[in-house]
């Protein structure tokens, strides 16, 4: 039954190009949410997106949640002295007037305990929690395993 609910959620969410829309809460705008397809559900998935703080007060992304992963969390890839490691991070700063991103090689959402394999073309909801602005839910597009950026007409190169 749980699987059916999840499948329904994914199908309902699978409307094209939703991830390319800008979603707002308070001074926070989020867009270009995307993920990579996974082989099976045993390996963690990833989430990337772009956050703009249009206000004059610093904010921070402090949590991520999604029905398709038992343990979604924020990580940051850190390359130090030629070694890459990926520490768990509690929050990502989103300074006033600036754009911050979950992007390859930096902060990223790591989806552990996937309840299903992510397939190219799927999409799923992701709820972001900001310290000040509160909660906001975006639709994440699942792209191919080799994807490097969001597939939106206005996506940053």
């Amino acid at each position: 039954m749980k699987r059916l609910i999840l499948a329904t959620l994914v199908v309902f969410a699978a409307m094209p190009a939703l991830a390319c829309e800008t979603v707002r809460v308070g001074d926070i705008e989020v867009e270009h949410a995307w993920s990579r397809a996974t082989i099976g559900a045993d390996r963690p998935g990833v989430v990337y997106l772009s956050i703009r703080n249009t206000g004059s007060t610093d904010d921070a992304l402090i949590g991520v949640a999604t029905p398709i992963a038992g343990m979604p969390m924020l990580h940051e890839t850190v390359v130090s002295d030629g070694i890459a490691s990926m520490p768990h991070t509690m929050s990502m700063p989103v300074p006033a007037g600036q754009t911050a991103a979950l992007a390859p090689g930096g902060f990223h959402g790591m989806l552990m305990g996937l309840t299903l394999a992510l397939k190219k073309g799927d999409s799923f909801p992701l709820t972001l929690t900001f310290e000040t602005a509160g909660d906001l839910t975006v639709t994440v597009d699942v792209l191919g395993m080799g994807a490097k950026e969001a597939e939106c007409p206005d996506a940053q190169p």
Partner: peptide, 11 residues
């Protein structure tokens, strides 16, 4: 099992 660095480089 590496979600960020390895897929990015292999891509």
């Amino acid at each position: 099992n590496c979600p960020d660095v390895c897929p990015t480089t292999l891509a």
